[in-house]
C-alpha cells in the first residue's frame, strides 16, 4: 500500500499518522486518532454528524480526503470542552433540553460554533441559526430546543466577550 505520512494538529496536539490516499478525515479521526466524538452516518455530507472544524470552519469530515488537510488544524467535539470545563454551547445544549439520542449533537455543536465564530459577539436571530444548522440533521428534537441552545449560548458568549 502506498501509505503516506500525514501531519495534522487535532485539538491542539500534533499528530503524525500513516494514511492511505483514499482515507477520509473522518476515518483518520476515528480509526487512527481515536476521536470517537466525530460520528459516522451517511458518508455523503447529507447528515452532518461527522462535522469537525477545519482551521475553525465547519466541514463534513466524511468526504474530505485526509491527504488534503496536511498541516491543517482540526477541532473535534473533544477539543472545545470537557465534562469539567464545558463550552457555553455544550452547557446550553444540556440546559435547554436540546440533547436526545445525542448522535447528531457533536456535529450540531461544531456547526453552531463555526457559525458563531464567523462574527464574534454576534447574537443571530432564530432564523439565522436555523439556516446555519440546516446541514446537520436531527431526527429526535424537531430542532426547537437546539435553536434555543444556540441562541442561549450566543447570548452568553456575547455577554462574556463584552465584559472582557
Amino acid at each position: 500500500m502506498n501509505r503516506k505520512i500525514l501531519n495534522i494538529v487535532v485539538n491542539g496536539e500534533s499528530h503524525q499518522v500513516l494514511i492511505e490516499p483514499h482515507w477520509t478525515l473522518l476515518q483518520v479521526l476515528r480509526n487512527e486518532i481515536g476521536m470517537m466524538g466525530t460520528k459516522e452516518n451517511c458518508l455523503e455530507a447529507e447528515c452532518g454528524v461527522c462535522t469537525v472544524l477545519l482551521d475553525g470552519k465547519a466541514i463534513n469530515s466524511c468526504i474530505l480526503l485526509a491527504g488534503q488537510v496536511e498541516g491543517c488544524s482540526i477541532t473535534t467535539i473533544e477539543g472545545i470542552g470537557d465534562p469539567e470545563h464545558l463550552h457555553p454551547l455544550q452547557e446550553a445544549f444540556i440546559e435547554c433540553g436540546a440533547v436526545q439520542c445525542g448522535y447528531c449533537i457533536p456535529g450540531m455543536i461544531l456547526t453552531a460554533k463555526s457559525f458563531l465564530d464567523e462574527n464574534p459577539g454576534c447574537r443571530p436571530s432564530r432564523d439565522e441559526i436555523r439556516e446555519a444548522i440546516a446541514g446537520t440533521l436531527c431526527r429526535c428534537t424537531g430542532y426547537r430546543k437546539i435553536i434555543d441552545a444556540v441562541a442561549t449560548a450566543a447570548d452568553r458568549i456575547a455577554l462574556s466577550g463584552a465584559k472582557q
Binding site: L54, S114, T136
Partner: peptide, 9 residues
C-alpha cells in the same frame, strides 16, 4: 448550496 459545512469547503 448544501449546508454550511459544504459551503465552507
Amino acid at each position: 448550496v448544501g449546508g454550511h459545512q459544504v459551503r465552507n469547503i
